[in-house]
Nucleic acid binder design. Sequence first.
DNA 1: AGTGTATATGTCATTCGATGATATATGGTG
DNA 2: CACCATATATCATCGAATGACATATACACT
Lengths: 116, 116
Amino acid sequence: MPSDATPPLQEPTFYILLSLSQEAKHGYAILKDVEDLSSGKIKLGTGTLYGALSRLLDQGLIQRVDGAGPEDDTHPGKPRKAYALTHSGLGVLHDETARLDGLLSAARRRLKELRA
Amino acid sequence: MPSDATPPLQEPTFYILLSLSQEAKHGYAILKDVEDLSSGKIKLGTGTLYGALSRLLDQGLIQRVDGAGPEDDTHPGKPRKAYALTHSGLGVLHDETARLDGLLSAARRRLKELRA
DNA sequence: AGTGTATATGTCATTCGATGATATATGGTG
DNA sequence: CACCATATATCATCGAATGACATATACACT
């Protein structure tokens, strides 16, 4: 059964999954990474971020992992919590990328005819 | 003033605007067109469609126009109501296409590193 | 010691769009 | 006449994003 009927991801959720696709990160690191990833266009609010993380955990698209790297010794703020993509999460990310591709190529087709 | 801060469109809304980019259509025609446009993947419910049309009118992204073509003589069902993209709507459609492009290229960058 | 800043996590009410169910109306076909 | 495709519309509900608020801590500067 090919990963079926996942409803379209919204922009923040997509970026969060994408940010985790390389390596495990903790919340605040995702926040900063997404800002880079989107060329500064997207600045997640913490409400959006932690709300999404909680939801994605429930859905099994991400999971908790311990110690994000060896340099988790002394840092300010509350204790870090690291997250990683699950197998299922990676699948959804690929599906979603394919969906965007379909959307974009449909748009280009139509918008091209406009210039003709 | 460059079209500012339009929140990301969701899939149904995007397809509706895209469908109107070529020519004016009435609601039910949009319904069918979007099904083609998306290779049968998207089947809009009428709640989604007419809800979106009403909202897009309010936002000034589309407008009512009369008689969709000369063949609006005898047809079943309630009287047709045709809609067309406004200037503003076309702008949003272009912005949105650019946003998708950014999203997709960010995804490809990251996902490519995965295979390396 | 006190003040500020960057790091770090979390909750909450509100808003907004999508969804599926339901309703209504009508022309053409079997 | 029953059925179907066409055609528009409303409604309650759900899910995700958002911004405001709250809490905690390490470090730097005065």
